[in-house]
């Protein structure tokens, strides 16, 4: 075991893993985390804690991870390259491991122009591929990027994101291969709506045996309304929602659109778990944490495995 995390154990047991996501509050109100966490407990194997997602300042992912651990939920601590240089990253990683964090997700991070401090100076000292490799070196060799030895154990299950919907498409399988070569253990994809393109990407990954070199989790986000579908399709870069899904959402009255979104999500999960090489589902129910029990139940993802 690389980390002994619950998530790693689920993968090792050969069962389909399920991760959720929790957006920390825009302030110090930890009740928000506790409230959201309540709905996720027992419903997912681990929970991603976003790190200033969309470049909006929020309670730090490291502190949120500790709060989650105290509640008895396993965190996947996200870390972006936008806000920290290699010194701050490694220092915070020490802190995270010392506090009991065992899963990480390495991300480039959304550019600060999209957030609430567009005037900020970004860092990007190292990128996400380099961060993966840095973590692997810290874990497997007990060394910092500088080569200095780490005092103490450093256990971590190393994750990263992949976006099969970013362009150029032909670069997306090589990029997955690069993250694997850098040392990634698991991948969570961007939310999938364009099933055809996703399957094509997986086909490319399988052709190179990449699906056996890391655990690939398919990202899913339930659509709450036709408006949300439109917004994500037009405004969120790297997400494309096929016309038939948008039509389906628009085709029902407003008050039934959330239900339609859930139906679509259940169908998507059914389809995704049949794709060869998919080892888990990453459920990003954005500001819908309280609906997660219903979502995982209806998607047939319960009960979640337990280990001693």
């Amino acid at each position: 075991m690389k980390s002994n995390s619950n998530l790693e154990k689920v993968f090792a047991s050969g069962q389909l893993a399920v991760t959720g996501e929790l957006g920390p509050p825009k302030g110090t109100n930890i009740k928000v985390i506790e409230e959201k966490a309540k709905h996720l407990k027992g419903m997912v194997d681990a929970v991603n804690l976003t790190d200033n997602q969309t470049a909006i300042v929020r309670l730090s992912s490291i502190a949120s991870a500790k709060i989650l651990l105290d509640i008895g939920l396993e965190p996947v601590m996200q870390m972006v390259c936008r806000d920290r240089n290699r010194l701050a990253m490694q220092s915070d990683l020490f802190g995270a491991v010392a506090l009991g964090v065992r899963n990480m997700l390495c991300l480039s991070g959304d550019h600060q122009v999209f957030g609430n401090h567009p005037q900020a100076k970004n860092v990007y000292d190292i990128d996400s591929v380099q961060m993966i490799n840095m973590l692997k070196t810290m874990r497997d060799e007990g060394k910092l990027l500088s080569g200095d030895e780490i005092d103490g154990e450093f256990k971590m299950f190393i994750g990263a994101a992949e976006n099969p919907f970013g362009d150029p498409f032909a670069s997306r399988v090589p990029r997955l291969a690069k993250k694997i070569a850098a040392g990634v253990d698991f991948i969570q994809t961007q939310c999938i709506y364009d099933m055809e393109r996703f399957k094509k990407w997986m086909e490319g990954a399988r052709a190179r045996g990449l699906h056996e070199k890391c655990f690939i989790m398919a990202g899913v986000t339930p659509l709450k309304s036709a408006g949300m579908a439109n917004y994500m399709n037009n405004k969120v870069s790297g997400i494309s929602i096929p016309e038939d899904i948008i039509k389906r959402m628009k085709g029902v009255p407003k008050e039934q659109q959330a239900e339609e979104g859930i139906k679509i999500m259940v169908e998507q999960i059914d389809e995704l778990r049949k794709v060869e090489g998919i080892k888990g589902i990453h459920l990003m129910a954005i500001e819908w944490e309280h609906r997660v029990p219903e979502l995982v139940e209806r998607a047939g993802l319960l009960p979640r495995p337990k280990f001693d």
Binding site: R82, G109, Y124
Partner: peptide, 13 residues
């Protein structure tokens, strides 16, 4: 825009 050395990131369209 992010001075990445191992791109492209997911924001390329």
């Amino acid at each position: 825009s992010k001075s990445l050395l191992n791109g492209p990131c997911g924001g390329s369209e």
